[in-house]
């Protein structure tokens, strides 16, 4: 019986912006239920790598989710395969309510139904973020940074991800808020969810990651630098 495929396989992934090569032939694999951190200084290709995996930018190489190869630059296909990104700086919809922001996380499943039915489909994510219950009718653009990050995570959970990609989830947040965010991430990591986390700060990363790899100048420098 062949072994089960990895939850996420990245093989020979490269990203270029014109002549500038941001990511060069990155290969890594994340097993089902594992949390892997990609650490390294800013400007060395971590975010380019993870956004290419999510289909937001064109890439070379292959990305597979539970053995299914994803097409290039197709974020919709990635979401349908269960690969969901929480992007750097969140990218919420500031003029829409918290409820709509979360509900749209399930868009690929619920796009043909009425908004009220779609909300019923995803309201369960509030169990993980009960604080959001009182903010549901507030515009997302009026929330604090920590609350917005909570909405971004809830939106991702509404998509029912099989593999969660997190890009710098604490960027721009105060330390106390960042630690709260990592408490939520640790709760997620303790479920059977597969997580690939991009984080500049290795201290934060190793709070939740099973192992970490380091990216430097667009390359995965060492396949494994830490284990917890």
């Amino acid at each position: 019986m062949p072994p089960a495929p990895a939850a996420l396989e990245v093989e020979g992934l490269s990203v270029s912006y014109g002549k500038f090569v941001a990511v060069e032939s990155v290969t890594l694999s994340v097993a089902a239920g594992e949390c892997v951190a990609v650490i390294g200084p800013n400007g060395h290709g971590k975010s380019s790598m993870v956004t290419a995996v999510a289909g937001l930018v064109r890439r070379g190489g292959a990305v597979r989710v539970f053995g299914e190869t994803l097409p290039v630059a197709s974020p919709g296909a990635a979401v349908r395969a269960g690969l969901v990104l929480v992007p750097e700086r969140r990218h919420l919809y500031p003029e829409l309510t918290t409820r709509d922001n979360i509900m749209l996380g399930s868009y690929s499943r619920t796009r043909r139904i009425r908004a009220r039915q779609a909300w019923e489909d995803v309201a369960g994510v509030l169990d993980m973020f009960p604080e959001l219950s009182r903010l549901l009718d507030q515009k997302a653009g009026t929330l604090s940074g920590g609350q917005q990050q909570m909405v971004a995570l809830a939106r991702a959970m509404a998509a029912k991800p099989r593999v969660l990609l997190l890009d710098e989830p604490c960027l721009g947040l105060a330390e106390a808020v960042a630690r709260r965010v990592y408490d939520w991430l640790r709760e997620m990591a303790e479920t059977d969810m597969t997580i690939l986390l991009v984080e500049e700060n290795p201290v934060y990363a190793l709070l939740v990651a099973d192992r970490a790899v380091r990216m430097y100048k667009g390359l995965v420098e060492r396949p494994e630098v830490a284990s917890t």
């Binding site: 974020p75 919709g76 990218h91 003029e95 709509d100 749209l104 868009y107 690929s108 908004a115």
Partner: peptide, 26 residues
């Protein structure tokens, strides 16, 4: 715009192109 998921998604496109693409909105 008020009652359909599609209408909410249309609004999301104007709010954040990246934010809409990552949930599968074209």
């Amino acid at each position: 715009l008020r009652f359909t998921v599609s209408g909410r998604a249309a609004s999301a496109c104007g709010e954040s192109v990246i934010g809409s693409r990552i949930v599968g909105i074209d």
